[in-house]
Design a protein around this nucleic acid. Structure first.
Lengths: 114, 114
DNA sequence: TTACTGTATCACTATACAGTAATATTTGCT
DNA sequence: AGCAAATATTACTGTATAGTGATACAGTAA
């Protein structure tokens, strides 16, 4: 019997899964500056039309972006700016990790030259 | 040409991908109380041995947990508590989302009964 | 209506990966 | 050395999904 109930974790995992694709992060980033329609997102991200549409559906279902049809085109915008906090946290960790790695390399180098 | 450079996003996406599996979140959660060896993690999470081993490798490579062999067994511990901040942020969003959904249901119900 | 544009969906392929059983490796003990 | 327990690795299967081309479905203008 697992001590940790996994039901709730499934939902958290699903949320992270939405963010675990570079293409979707591209879409999110290109919406940081404001609302865009699908065509604009396509050119900004260099992704195919069907692909963008699919990613936007996933992001919308996750509540990360919101959909705003306007005439023949559909505009999307960030519905939940918390995303950027998440990305920043991860970026900080990645940077910190790279720094410690380079420090270790430096120490190794110093030892090799001693 | 994409306006947003995707190279860096790939690494962020990879980090999120590590967190996008409920089993790995289980492992992380069961290590919140402190260091555990593989067998203890297995019983706490109800996952198979090979599976746990694989997840621990992935978590270690991501710098999320650290490995500490001790005799015949190997202990793992959280190497980067920032994880819990990430999970909390996501949990908050999920809760907020559920609340707005239930509010919408309430409004729908009220309209139906009016 | 017809034509056109923008968006969504369908069908398909290729790839990635979680889970598992079997095997290998490591460590401690006698 | 030989044995046993804990962990790691390998090989494999099944499933999920990113990307794509073709097609369907709006919504607008003539």
């Amino acid at each position: 019997m697992p001590e940790v109930v996994p039901q709730a974790l499934e939902q958290v995992a699903d949320y992270f899964k939405v963010l675990s694709e570079a293409s979707r992060l591209q879409v999110i980033c290109c919406l940081k500056s404001g609302s865009k329609n699908v065509t604009e997102i396509m050119t900004a991200t260099d992704l195919g039309q069907a692909n963008v549409s699919k990613h936007l559906k996933i992001l919308t279902q996750a509540g990360i972006v919101s959909r705003h049809p306007s005439g023949v085109s559909v505009y999307y915008k960030i519905a939940d700016p918390i995303i950027f906090n998440l990305c920043e946290l991860v970026c900080d960790r990645l940077v910190a990790r790279l720094e410690t790695q380079s420090q270790q390399l430096d120490r190794l180098e110093a030892w090799r030259n001693s």
